[in-house]
């Protein structure tokens, strides 16, 4: 799950940052000439800077390979089911809410009034996909459900006092 990977990655690097600051704080009471320190650590900075740029480049290339904006490549003759979604204060008009496992779906999402957020949650309440629902524009979400169950649609953009009550359900069967 992406959230777990994001959490562990963040935690790892945050702990590394904490460790570095901790070591420097512990060593701060010693007094040494600044010039040799600068010379040594400027050299190290070049290596650190290059490593960071390389790491970021690798991550960028890896994570940009598949974007949620792109329509996935479906099998021959297997067009996605187009579902029109209209958000409005404070509910959802969804043209179809029952789907089959493995059925490719394209949600075309818009809004009748203000900005909303169209977030799809699985049965364990993990967010699995989202897009913004905006008046005058249509944003698309491509999804193929792998598991049967009752999925929930939650509003993820603040839209007024009943924002947290904007919940709809999607049924996915075998």
């Amino acid at each position: 799950m992406i959230q777990t990977v994001a959490w562990i990655t963040s935690l790892f690097f945050m702990l590394m940052v904490a460790a570095v600051f901790g070591v420097v704080a512990l060593k701060s009471k010693e007094r040494k000439d600044y010039e040799p320190i600068k010379k040594k650590w400027y050299k190290a900075r070049t290596f650190y800077g290059i490593s960071l740029v390389v790491l970021m480049l690798v991550l960028t290339i890896y994570t940009l390979r598949e974007l949620p904006y792109n329509q996935p490549v479906y099998g021959q003759g297997k067009d996605p089911t187009i579902v029109d979604v209209e958000a409005l204060q404070f509910g959802w008009n969804i043209s179809q809410t029952s789907f089959k496992v493995g059925e490719p779906i394209e949600f075309d999402v818009t809004s009748a009034d203000v900005n909303h957020g169209f977030g799809i949650y699985d049965e364990d309440m993990n967010l699995i996909a989202q897009t913004q629902a905006m008046p005058e524009y249509v944003n698309k979400v491509y999804i193929t459900f792998d598991e049967p169950g009752t999925y929930e649609v939650l509003c993820l953009e603040y839209c007024g006092l009943a924002h947290h009550l904007m919940i709809a359900t999607l049924e996915v069967t075998e």
Partner: peptide, 14 residues
Amino acid sequence: VDATIVVNHVMHNT
């Protein structure tokens, strides 16, 4: 981490 598009897809506005 959040500025990564594939992560943002499931963490934006959380």
